[in-house]
Nucleic acid binder design. Structure first.
Lengths: 265, 265
DNA sequence: CGAGTTGTTGAAATGACTCAATGTTAGTGG
DNA sequence: CCACTAACATTGAGTCATTTCAACAACTCG
């Protein structure tokens, strides 16, 4: 399973990540030297809420979810991390704790840099710092939009929008429409949009009867994107921060799916 | 009213802002040269949602609120901007639109830099870029926390927490406890925590009867901080991003209050 | 096959919203 | 100084979306 990663694939991964955009190839190679490739089993924690934020990382393979838990044990899903997405920019600031837990949904390979190494990269390659700022600004925009949605929109609208977004960033063509290529339980969706798994289940059942979606165990196919978009209501186009890495995600996951198949048989 | 600002006060304002932290005095002066001081009347828009994001700014005097409006006209208050706080870091990225409207609550004086000038500042003073990144990272943390609260906590808890926070950042000693030195209507509070003014009014009435707070028209005094904190439940300490500029806010507003008084009489 | 997820659905409870009527306070101008 | 106005605040009653609880069905995996 845990195949040693191909160095050129690692380079591709960084090259396509917004953090390393506009960097000369030699600079990326240099940065890669400072990185550590860590493998985390499915269900394991890539970073743990409350721990000292000492590492910055990029997901090289696998999927993970970023969650925040409350003192009472309630859980909120902030976002999904897929291959090519970064986390822990916080690590440049000394003396901070991770505000979230990142949990591997499936086995993940993660490229890691320690805080000081990242800080050094910022100094040696100012472009990296600018890229980081861009990412944070865009991510902030996205969060603000979700915050507003949570206040102003009903569960139905939020669920519709979540499905449309997921179909966009993790959609795979399917006979009935666009399949969301992510093992999504009702509970995952509920945590994503801030509701309960029961309400999600009910709403999906309704939509299934109306022919808008087709569902199964941890599987959702969007059949009528246009109708769902209408249910979601008018909304600004998705900020680029999520969209950008996705071309990469497609690329990498397709490549790895192929190699995994050959390896398995 | 619109007194020409004292240059040394402007310098103080920048010096205390996290964006310009760790900069040499000459560098701050240089940056100040590139700025434009704009006055916006109470009720006017400092930036308008949807407009091209071409300016970065720092509030020099007055208070403003950052809101996001939906297509249906619903409004969400994202945060209050007080003297010393910045906005529009987005302007370094070309081709973006403001995702929010910033509305002056009272007459505001705003220091503005155009996008290119800000970008230039980033190049000439890498520290500024790092500071900007720090701010965005911390602000992102704060938003994540508020997002989680919105999902997991009841209105009562959120209101209690909002009052405790407001008392911390804008509290003034009072005979009955800590007065929040901000003209806060029930509606403002409601938009802050994502509820309606009616629910806020009811909850405050209840608390007033229990002796936890004392209220008046746009005036709230926190009498029993400990009890409110308990109602708010366990919560991580407030991220520094808000706290940092507050000492400055106190300083400046006190200074200006004094000078305004002498000017008026 | 059996055990443990994962999903469905009904009924009851409820927190919060909406609407509408009414009271209160701070300014304004005569 | 007072009446007038507009903004702000309170309160009750009715409604609704969503949650909660509980029981059951369906699927997966060892």
């Amino acid at each position: 399973m845990a195949v040693v990663a191909d160095p050129s694939e690692l380079l591709d991964c960084l090259r396509a990540n917004p953090v390393f955009a506009e960097l000369k190839p030699w600079a990326i190679e240099e940065l890669l030297d400072g990185a550590l490739l860590r493998t985390v089993q499915a269900g394991g924690a890539i970073v743990r809420q409350g721990d000292a934020a000492d590492h910055f990382g990029v997901i090289f393979s696998g999927r993970a979810k970023m969650v925040q838990v409350t003192a009472e044990g309630h859980q909120v899903l902030l976002r999904y991390l897929m291959a090519g997405q970064e986390f822990g920019l916080l690590a440049v600031l000394p003396e901070h704790a991770y505000p979230v837990t990142i949990e591997a949904v499936e086995e993940c390979q993660v490229l890691c840099w320690s805080g000081p190494v990242l800080a050094d990269a910022f100094v040696r390659h100012p472009q990296v710092a600018l890229n980081a700022l861009r990412i944070m600004v865009l991510r902030n925009q996205e969060l603000q939009a979700r915050y507003r949605e949570l206040v102003t929109d009903r569960v139905e609208q939020r669920l519709a929008r979540a499905l449309v977004r997921l179909a966009t960033i993790a959609g795979a063509p399917d006979e009935q429409g666009t399949r969301i290529a992510l093992p999504l339980s009702r509970e995952d969706l509920a945590e994503m949009i801030g509701t309960t798994l029961y309400t999600v289940s009910r709403t999906l059942s309704q939509w299934e009867q109306a022919g808008l979606v087709a569902t199964g165990r941890e599987r959702i196919v969007v059949c009528a994107t246009a109708e769902l978009e209408q249910l979601a209501g008018a909304s600004e186009p998705l900020p680029v921060s999520c969209v950008a890495p996705c071309a990469l995600v497609e690329m990498l996951s397709a490549a790895r799916a192929a190699s995994a198949q050959t390896a398995r048989h």
